[in-house]
């Protein structure tokens, strides 16, 4: 695979100077704060129910190995 033209490389090869570590840290911290807030939201019932249904359906169809 991919000797001649590697499509995965196509974009954004031009490099930009990396941000100083300290600033990376400040940004990373904000990002994680915002993200953790989302992760901490309670999981709606619909997902528990969905997985139960998927499992149930499989159990019903089950047996064929």
């Amino acid at each position: 695979m991919g000797t001649s033209s590697d499509p995965k490389r196509g974009d954004s090869v031009t490099m930009q100077a990396p941000l100083p570590v300290e600033l990376q840290g400040q940004i990373g911290q904000r990002l994680r704060e915002a993200y953790i807030e989302l992760i901490n939201e309670p999981v709606p019932d619909r997902f528990v129910i969905l997985l139960q249904k998927l499992k149930q359906r499989e159990d019903e169809q089950g047996g064929q190995s």
Partner: peptide, 14 residues
Amino acid sequence: AVGTVKSRVNRARV
């Protein structure tokens, strides 16, 4: 590609 990911992360931070 890994290089693409690195450069995207960097651009995003900048």
